[in-house]
Design a protein around this nucleic acid. Structure first.
Lengths: 358, 358
DNA sequence: ATAGCACTCGAAATCGATTGCATAAATTAT
DNA sequence: ATAATTTATGCAATCGATTTCGAGTGCTAT
């Protein structure tokens, strides 16, 4: 092996006949070292090719300059944006970011929690796996005073920060919008009901119906386990085969909503005239599908940045109270998939396209 | 603060009147500790709530059980899948994964390289920023014997592993397919030419044209800096306004290709009859846009897994030769955007849809 | 002139896990 | 029965940076 020897502060100390303490202090701009000495030491360090060993520093300081992320799967637009936000904010502050994905499996989430704990992360940003119903694997972080920020899919009642959106109101507004567009039988594609976001979106849907004089028809309420493309397709098929099919669908995500649009189109059901559809998330596919999918947009990147910031701020405080809840605004983006009435609408017109590169 | 004291192997040692050495060995199933003692120590560790401090282990072992990832931006389907593959393979082997994104900016890439180096990562998986032309920030890893796996967007001539696809052949086949579909004036949306993937795709395009008796018309060669949606739209507009507009486009990514489809549709140009289009990557939008976008699919997740595996395998060898090149197969997925001729085609029919969840 | 203070810097302990060397006991081989 | 192993464990150094005590120098104020 041809490994070059690594330069440590001891090497610099020997070179300059200083003590390692002085080197360390100089490199960290400690006030008790003269400017001249600091300059000399930094220049020498540079010249010798010194690079700090952050592992050693982490051990000594008992903190790792690392944030941990627990998510279901990276390969989803909302999640990718969330991570992106966490990473960019964290790195600006000199923190690394470790990612772990559960693939929505509870056991993976527990294992990942162990791995992140063992890495002595400074803080944790977590969205729950679809399966997760027990939260005891988070207790170790709380016991150690390691701040947790739960984002989007969150548990109830843990001593942690929360960064969420108002799912109830978003579901309410989306359904109300469909009603205003003249829909009288509105179906709902719902996710697993023990997960807060799906339960709340559904509640918003139901309340909007009830407040406008409709009833909640169980026939029109489709509960999905994953809200996948194929699940959406199958549900759409069933709905359209009903003796009294719906004329509107509010889907708890865009994937299932898009599958509904595509199925409907293929079978001669006009969107939005025969079937108006609203999704959730504003994934890239929402602005690509034809007709464009009306949907609820999350500020995903922003949620990530805020999550990272909460942790960074927390480490500078000395109290261990962290019950702050940040609820961010969503926006109902109205595209063609739900726009039946011409003329002015009292809601903002959604963006039609999104730029992206590769 | 209410932090519980952390349990270390010293605490276990005191509790059981063993030495810390014995505790350490027992927890690692060292052969020189009796089964009985191992069992006792592990049970006690469990009972006391012991959790290993991987930072301390990393310092002592001078390796971190961490892989580093350098990518342009997470928020792209190909990249997200790549990361997903690295993460899942790495975690199975007990490694953490640190992500860094450059946003295609050279300076960020250099800074991220420093941060990853300072974290003493076991290995690095990297795809280059669009801007990057100088590779000296990778030298420090090579000097230390830290393996680098370059994926997709790779530099030339560094002592590293490579995981790539045959961009030349993919570009050649895509163009040939358009020719076979009857196109006679085929445009190309090209990316920055100093980046290998875009240069190679273009070369494949040009050679396919030449070999089939066409010439390369500079008017039809559009070089993009980012291959974004808006860039694609503008280029399509220009092309269609030509006195002699193209009847086919091979785009080096899907985003620009989809923008071309949407622009053409909006302006009464029929796809594929008047304008056949092939993209690259098989992003989710490719199977959502109408007509479905023919495209070249990458095995992104697999590339990630292979990259992680190369590093894991490398750490078990003791030679420092790492010039292995893995070239993976791509597949031309033919959808409606390029399918002019009915009847049998000598290429496999692409998948029409992809499932995803949220 | 001497106490008081600011400024520079060093010695040594510390963070927690690992491991080469040494030791002692137990088992096997000759 | 004695030598040769094997088994089981401890001591102490080590990884590299940080930090608590000090200690020494030079300067100002009284």
């Amino acid at each position: 092996m041809n490994k070059k020897k690594e330069i440590t502060i001891y090497d610099i100390a020997k070179e300059l006949s200083f003590s390692p303490s002085t080197i360390s202090r100089a490199l960290n701009d400690h006030h008790s070292i003269s400017d001249k000495t600091i300059k000399l030491i930094k220049e020498t360090a540079q010249k010798m090719g010194y690079r700090p060993n952050s592992i050693a520093a982490s051990l000594r300081n008992n903190k790792s300059n690392t944030l941990g992320i627990m998510i279901s799967r990276i390969n989803r637009p909302f999640i990718a944006s969330l991570i992106s936000g966490v990473e960019s904010r964290a790195r600006k502050a000199g923190y690394n970011v470790i990612i772990t994905q559960s693939n929505d499996i509870y056991k993976n989430e527990v294992d990942n929690a162990q791995a992140l704990y063992d890495s002595r992360i400074t803080g944790l940003v977590a969205t729950l796996a679809m399966e997760t119903k027990d939260y005891s694997h988070f207790q170790q972080f709380i016991d150690q005073g390691t701040p947790i920020v739960f984002v989007d899919r969150v548990p109830k009642g843990l001593n942690a920060y929360y960064v969420i959106i108002d799912n109830y109101m978003a579901g309410y507004k989306a359904t109300k919008h469909l009603i205003e567009q003249g829909c009288t039988r509105i179906a709902h594609f719902a996710g697993a009901q023990h997960r807060n976001i799906y339960g709340e979106r559904r509640k918003g849907y139901e309340d909007a119906l009830l407040e406008h004089g409709f009833t909640v028809d169980p026939e029109l309420l489709c509960e999905f386990s994953t809200l996948s493309f194929s699940e959406g397709k199958k549900a759409t098929k069933n709905l359209l085969a009903l003796p009294n099919p719906p004329d509107g669908i509010f889907s708890a995500n865009d994937t299932a909503a898009v599958s509904a649009i595509m199925y409907a189109k293929k079978h001669g059901v006009r969107v939005p005239q025969d079937l108006a559809i609203v999704g959730f998330n504003d994934d890239p596919i929402a602005s690509i599908v034809d007709p464009g999918l009306s949907t609820v947009s999350h500020p995903a990147q922003k949620m990530g940045k805020i999550s990272a910031q909460l942790i960074l701020d927390h480490t500078e405080k000395d109290d261990d109270d962290l019950t702050e809840i940040k609820m961010l605004k969503t926006e109902l983006l109205i595209r063609e998939s739900s726009l039946r009435k011409k003329g002015p609408v009292d809601l903002p017109l959604g963006k039609q396209q999104k730029a992206d590169t590769n």
